[in-house]
Design a protein around this nucleic acid. Structure first.
Length: 276
DNA sequence: AGGCAGGCTTTTA
DNA sequence: TAAAAGCCTGCC
């Protein structure tokens, strides 16, 4: 099917924004996007026109929400006053087209547990190894195989020995603990719907191996808490350099998480070997 | 109590 | 050798 998108929407920038680790950019510029147990091919035809390999019914039922297409990101960017915050205005311009995807909470949590103390290529590799080891094998519309992201049960079944082959290092016990919590009921994303952002992060940081940073990423990218502002090593540098007198969180509510993505995108120095 | 140093796996510049 | 979208433990 084909769609037209007027609002900010830049697949390449979303791919490089560090919120998703399974997207692949094919040589022809098309993106292959495994998400949950689905896989989409989407390509730009220019002028906001896109071609997708799914039906309109599947687009309406899943991908429209996945890309957060009901949100007006141009309007969010317009909240920035370039005269009072020139750095953020510049960052938003460099990241124009980034959207906060509505990714699966479990997949997002595990991906960001895996992310700690690693660079993005290494994260991608481990996530793919995990999916290949424990995720259900499927075929996309081109007949290529891909693997769904494994459920907590499947990760438990894989066990510590299988996880070790995913090169998670010391993080494998964290992933296992999260899977146990999910199966045992201690971790329930459904119950978090009633909680405010702070309480959500409080719940997530109860998990072994999940600190404030990973919990913030899971909340922002997996639970779409768009006011949550993850602070990692890059953001620390950015805040120190650009906002020595403090960052105006109150001013940018309730979209602090969106602006965090612009700043992160502007500030992060990608590894030279990152192939996009 | 809350802050801090050191350790933890793996990979790559 | 150091650093990479960190977190845990132990010590003070």
């Amino acid at each position: 099917m084909e769609i037209h998108i007027d609002d900010d929407f830049d697949l390449d920038r979303i791919h490089r924004s560090g919120q998703c680790f399974r997207w692949q950019r094919l040589p022809d510029g098309t993106f292959r996007i495994p998400a949950g147990d689905r896989c989409l091919y989407i390509g730009s035809r220019g002028d906001g026109d896109y071609i997708l390999d799914c039906s309109e019914a599947e687009f309406d039922a899943f991908w429209k929400a996945y890309f957060d297409l009901d949100e007006d990101y141009a309007a969010i960017r317009a909240r920035i006053d370039p005269d009072t915050d020139p750095f953020l205005a510049q960052a938003a311009e460099s990241g124009r087209g980034i959207r906060i995807l509505r990714q699966d909470p479990w997949e997002t949590l595990v991906s960001f547990i895996i992310s700690q103390n690693r660079n993005i290529p290494a994260i991608r590799r481990s996530v793919e190894l995990l999916c290949a080891a424990a995720g259900q094998e499927r075929r996309d519309s081109r007949g290529e195989t891909y693997h769904a992201f494994p459920s907590p049960e499947k990760i438990l079944r894989l066990g510590g020995r299988g996880l070790a082959e995913c090169r998670l290092g010391y993080r494998d016990s964290y992933v296992l603990a999260a899977a146990q919590a999910a199966v045992g009921g201690a971790l329930s994303f459904g119950k978090m719907a009633a909680l405010d952002d702070e309480a959500v992060i409080g719940e997530l940081t109860k998990l072994y191996g999940v600190g404030v940073k990973v919990a913030s990423c899971a909340a922002l990218f997996g639970l779409h808490r768009v006011n949550v502002f993850p602070v990692d090593t890059w953001m620390k540098k950015a805040l120190k350099n650009e906002y020595p007198n403090g960052y105006p969180f109150e001013k940018y509510r309730p979209y602090n998480g969106v602006f965090q993505q612009y700043i992160f995108f502007r500030y992060r120095r990608p590894d030279r070997r990152e192939v996009f």
